[in-house]
Nucleic acid binder design. Structure first.
Length: 272
DNA sequence: CGGGCCCCCTGGTGGC
DNA sequence: TGCCACCAGGGGGCCC
C-alpha cells in the first residue's frame, strides 16, 4: 500500500527513467483508471510532451510535462509504475501505457483497479487534485503545526492521522507505527493530547516516515519502486501486522483493534 | 462534526 | 481438489 515513503521512493527512482523523454503515444486499456478527463483529451495533452520534473503531494505523484501540465497519479492500494521496453508483453492488470521516445513504455499497472490517473493544466490544478494538508517531512511541519491539526477535534487520534486534509501521506501502516513510537493510544480523542504528547507524536511521525524512506518503502505484497525493486522497511516495522507478537518495548502481546474501519495494532502497555 | 457503512476490486486464506 | 465466505484497505459518498 503506497503511502508517503513509497510514493516518494517511486518519484525518486522513476525520474531517471523518464527525465528528458518525450511521450510518443498513449494507450488507455482501462478507461475507469482515468478520472476527470476523457482518454482522447488526455492523449492530446500528453502526446508530444517532455518529462521535466516530478513532484509529490501526500500520496499523489505529479509527473510534469514541460509547458503543458501535470500527469497526476494516485496508486491507492496496488498501483505500480513500471518502465519496460514497448516490445514486452502487457502485464495482466495494465491500465495505461505511455510510449516514450527511447523505445520504453511507462506503464501504470493496477491489480485492484483503485488507482487513478488525472490531468492538471497547472500547479494550481495539481493542488486542486492533490488537495491535502501539511507535508509531515517538510520544514513547515513543526510540533506547533501538528498541534493545530489536532486541536479541538473529538475524532479518534488515528482517524485524524489518516485524514489527508490534515496531514498528507499517512496511511494505515505509518499511522500505527507513528502512534506506537509516540506511545499514544490510537483511540485517544485527537484534541486531548498534551503538549508533551504532541511533541512525541510529531517525533514518532517523522521517525516512522524517515526510516521507511531510508529503507525504500514497505513491501508487503505489491509495492515496488520505479526500478521494479521492493523496499525493505517491512523488516523494520515495529507493530504493523504484528498483533499477538510481543511488544518490542515491553514484551506484552500487541493487540488488534478496528479504528476508522482499519485494522489497528497497538501495545496496551506502552500506548496510553 | 464524527462514526459507521458501502462501494470500488482482486487475490490470498481458511473452513468444510 | 473445489467451492465459498471473508478479509485487506485509500478514498469518496451517504446516512444518521
Amino acid at each position: 500500500m503506497p503511502e508517503l515513503p513509497e510514493v516518494e521512493t517511486v518519484r525518486r527512482t522513476l525520474l531517471p527513467h523518464i527525465l528528458g523523454r518525450t511521450i510518443c503515444s498513449l494507450l488507455v486499456l482501462r478507461e475507469g483508471s482515468v478520472a476527470g478527463i476523457a482518454p482522447a483529451a488526455l492523449e492530446a495533452k500528453v502526446v508530444g510532451g517532455l518529462f521535466c520534473r516530478a513532484v509529490r503531494r501526500g500520496k499523489y505523484l505529479g509527473l510534469i510535462l514541460q509547458g503543458r501540465g501535470y500527469l497526476v497519479l494516485h496508486l491507492r492500494m496496488t498501483g505500480r509504475l513500471v518502465v519496460r521496453p514497448a516490445s514486452e508483453p502487457h502485464e495482466k492488470h495494465l491500465c495505461l501505457a505511455l510510449g516514450l521516445d527511447d523505445g520504453q513504455e511507462l506503464r501504470f499497472v493496477d491489480q485492484r483497479r483503485f488507482g487513478k490517473v488525472y490531468w492538471a493544466d497547472s500547479q494550481q490544478g495539481f493542488a486542486a487534485v492533490a488537495k491535502v494538508g501539511v507535508e509531515p517531512l517538510s520544514a513547515e511541519f513543526t510540533p506547533d503545526v501538528l498541534a493545530r491539526c489536532l486541536r479541538g477535534s473529538r475524532m479518534r487520534l488515528k482517524a485524524a492521522l489518516l485524514d489527508q486534509g490534515r496531514l498528507a501521506g499517512l496511511g494505515n501502516i505509518y499511522a500505527d507505527e507513528s502512534l506506537f513510537r509516540a506511545g499514544i493510544h490510537p483511540e485517544r480523542p485527537a484534541g486531548s493530547l498534551t503538549e508533551i504528547e504532541v511533541e512525541r507524536l510529531w517525533r514518532g511521525i517523522r521517525e516512522a516516515l524517515t526510516a521507511a524512506l531510508e529503507n525504500g518503502g514497505t513491501t508487503l505484497r505489491d509495492y515496488v519502486d520505479g526500478d521494479g525493486r521492493p523496499g525493505s522497511n517491512q523488516y523494520h516495522l515495529l507493530v504493523y501486522g504484528k498483533a499477538g507478537k510481543p511488544c518490542p518495548k515491553c514484551g506484552s502481546p500487541l493487540m488488534r483493534l478496528r479504528v476508522a474501519g482499519r485494522g489497528t495494532v497497538y501495545c496496551p502497555g506502552c500506548q496510553l
